[in-house]
C-alpha cells in the first residue's frame, strides 16, 4: 500500500515537471533569444539561411563594444542608479514614519489617511503624466533627472507605506512599550527596537521601491528630452534605434545589460520578498 502510494507520488511529480516545462520555456525563451542575438555577428543575425536557435558563426562582442564606445549607455546607467537610489532613500524614510504612525498611533482621521494612501497606491502613473509634466515645467525641472527624483516617490511612498504598515502590525506592541518604560523616547524605541525587528519589511520595501524606480518608463520618457539625461529603459528604447532602423544586436545587448543589476538585486532578496508575501503584506 505504502509502496503504491510512493509510486503514484513519483508519477505525479514527473507529471508536474512536464506541466511546469512550458511555463519555464514561455518565461525564459525571450531572454535566451535576446542573449544569443546580442552575441551574433550581423551577417548571421540577418541571414534567413541560418538556424536561429544557436550561434553558428562564432561569438562577437561588437554589439556590447558599440554600447560602451558609441552610445551613452554608461551615462544612462549612472542616471538610473542615481535616481533610483535617491528616490528609494526618500521614499523608504518617509514611508517608515508614516507607516509607523498609521499602524501604531491613535489619532483622529487615521483611517481616512490610511484609505487615502491606499487609493493613491492604486493610482496608475499613466493617469497623471500629462498634468505632472506641466507641474515639472512650472518648477523649472524639465529635462533634469531631479524631475524623476521628485516624482518617483509619489508612487513609491504609497506602496512602501502600505507594505510597512502590514509589517509593523505584526510586531507586538509590548516590545516598544517596554523600551519606553525603560526610558526610551518614541523615536529611540522605533530606531532601536521596532526597526531591527521589522528589517525584513524594510528590506522588502527598499527592494521594491528600487525595482519600481528602475522599471519606471513613462515619466522618464515624458519629462526628459536630452540624450545625456535619459534613464536606461528610455535611452535603450529611444536612442539605440538610429533613424528608423533597428540594430537588434546592440538593442538586445543594451536591454540585457540594463536589466542585469535589478535581476541581481532581486535574486539576493527573493526570499525576503516571498516571506513578505506570506506575512500578508499584499493580501
Amino acid at each position: 500500500m505504502v509502496k503504491m502510494l510512493g509510486k503514484k507520488k513519483t508519477l505525479w511529480n514527473i507529471a508536474r515537471y512536464f506541466g511546469i516545462l512550458p511555463f519555464v520555456i514561455y518565461s525564459l525563451f525571450p531572454f535566451y533569444w535576446m542573449l544569443i542575438t546580442s552575441l551574433k555577428k550581423n551577417s548571421e543575425l540577418y541571414s534567413l539561411a541560418s538556424i536561429p536557435f544557436w550561434i553558428q558563426k562564432g561569438i562577437t562582442l561588437e554589439h556590447y563594444v558599440y554600447l560602451f564606445e558609441k552610445s551613452s549607455f554608461l551615462t544612462w546607467f549612472g542616471n538610473t542608479l542615481l535616481v533610483s537610489i535617491l528616490s528609494t532613500l526618500i521614499s523608504v524614510s518617509i514611508s517608515i514614519l508614516a507607516a509607523y504612525a498609521l499602524a501604531r498611533l491613535r489619532f483622529r482621521g487615521a483611517e481616512l489617511f490610511g484609505a487615502g494612501i491606499f487609493a493613491v497606491y492604486l493610482m496608475p502613473s499613466t493617469l497623471l503624466f500629462l498634468p505632472l509634466s506641466k507641474v515639472i515645467s512650472t518648477l523649472g525641472l524639465s529635462d533634469t533627472i531631479w524631475s524623476l527624483v521628485l516624482t518617483y516617490p509619489s508612487f513609491m511612498i504609497p506602496f512602501s507605506t502600505w507594505m510597512l504598515m502590514a509589517y509593523f502590525r505584526t510586531i507586538p506592541r509590548e516590545i516598544e512599550e517596554c523600551a519606553m518604560i525603560d526610558g526610551c523616547t518614541r523615536i529611540q524605541a522605533i530606531v532601536r527596537v521596532v526597526l531591527p525587528v521589522a528589517i525584513p519589511g524594510v528590506v522588502t520595501a527598499t527592494l521594491f521601491s528600487f525595482l519600481l524606480s528602475w522599471h519606471e518608463f513613462i515619466y522618464a520618457l515624458t519629462f526628459i528630452s536630452s540624450s545625456l539625461k535619459k534613464t536606461l529603459s528610455v535611452g535603450v528604447v529611444a536612442e539605440l534605434v538610429r533613424g528608423d532602423v533597428f540594430f537588434w544586436g546592440s538593442l538586445m545587448a543594451g536591454a540585457l545589460l540594463a536589466s542585469v543589476p535589478i535581476v541581481i538585486v532581486f535574486i539576493f532578496l527573493m526570499d525576503y520578498y516571498i516571506s513578505g508575501l506570506t506575512a500578508g503584506a499584499i493580501k
Binding site: S27, P30, V234, L251, M252, I262
Partner: peptide
C-alpha cells in the same frame, strides 16, 4: 523554477518588450 518564473516580472517591461518586438520581426 521560482526564479525562472519570476524573471519576466523583474526585468523592466520596456526592455523585455524589445526582445518580443524582435521575436515578432
Amino acid at each position: 523554477f521560482r526564479a525562472a518564473i519570476l524573471l519576466p516580472w523583474v526585468v523592466p517591461t520596456a526592455l523585455s518588450t524589445l526582445g518580443w518586438k524582435w521575436m515578432f520581426d
